[in-house]
Write a protein that binds this DNA or RNA. Sequence first.
DNA 1: CGCCTGTGTGAGAATGGTTCTCATGACCAC
DNA 2: GTGGTCATGAGAACCATTCTCACACAGGCG
Lengths: 134, 134
Amino acid sequence: MSAPEVPVRRQTRQRTAVLALLEELDGFRTAQDLHALLRERGDAVGLATVYRALQALVDDGLVDVLRSEDGEAAYRRCSPVHHHHLVCRSCGTTVEVADPPVERWAARVAAEHGFADVQHQLEVFGTCRACAQR
Amino acid sequence: MSAPEVPVRRQTRQRTAVLALLEELDGFRTAQDLHALLRERGDAVGLATVYRALQALVDDGLVDVLRSEDGEAAYRRCSPVHHHHLVCRSCGTTVEVADPPVERWAARVAAEHGFADVQHQLEVFGTCRACAQR
DNA sequence: CGCCTGTGTGAGAATGGTTCTCATGACCAC
DNA sequence: GTGGTCATGAGAACCATTCTCACACAGGCG
């Protein structure tokens, strides 16, 4: 029996800064980006700390992770309910979309093949209106 | 105007070996795995060559790529028509599933938000019957 | 209010998957 | 066969991420 494991998250300047930056930005950003941004505005935070803060936020369900095509991780502040993303391939703007029949479909297909404990991962990529007009 | 760019793919022992191995295996394998397997059975192929062969196969649409949670790429021989995957989280067994209303749904949602040139990426993860029984 | 303890931090090193370099080898059109 | 490319392979380079470890600070307690 594993205990609930509440890791007693301390509130520090660095963690606050990372979350605040994510709140302020739109779309997915890599850890490297966030680190560079914080540094630019004089709010110096170590790279390792940015990674740790992001992991903690992901664990708490406050932030989404996405793997870009080249394997780099991108993070985004999100609402804590299940949803998917519509991401602009060019500028990174993101729209959260509530989920459709996909839920039911995934569950049904999985059951048909004898799979249990099902999760799914769906991202839609496209070019947003602004970028298409350039 | 860019020419069609047909890179004149040569047939070599190494590329044949990589594709043959993928044909033979089931489920997604990392480049490192494939390299180790080839080496074990005495069919020595350089690691860089495995990566190059896999990229060529992906470009030709003969192989699918998937990014595992830690960013490692996994490859799998696949049918050249659009489809999604049902992957066992535990043993890696994969089932190709033809896709459902998701196609239409993705297109519609994208259009509603002014996105063009839409692609999507959907993977379903679960525990297959065999693994669940252990 | 100040101490204490354990958690958080940061710089740099380590890790590990992937890509690059470049000299050498092999495919294949002629 | 021959030649000109393209492919190969060993190792180095690259780069995102994680680890290490000494030091700093949050925050509960006296």
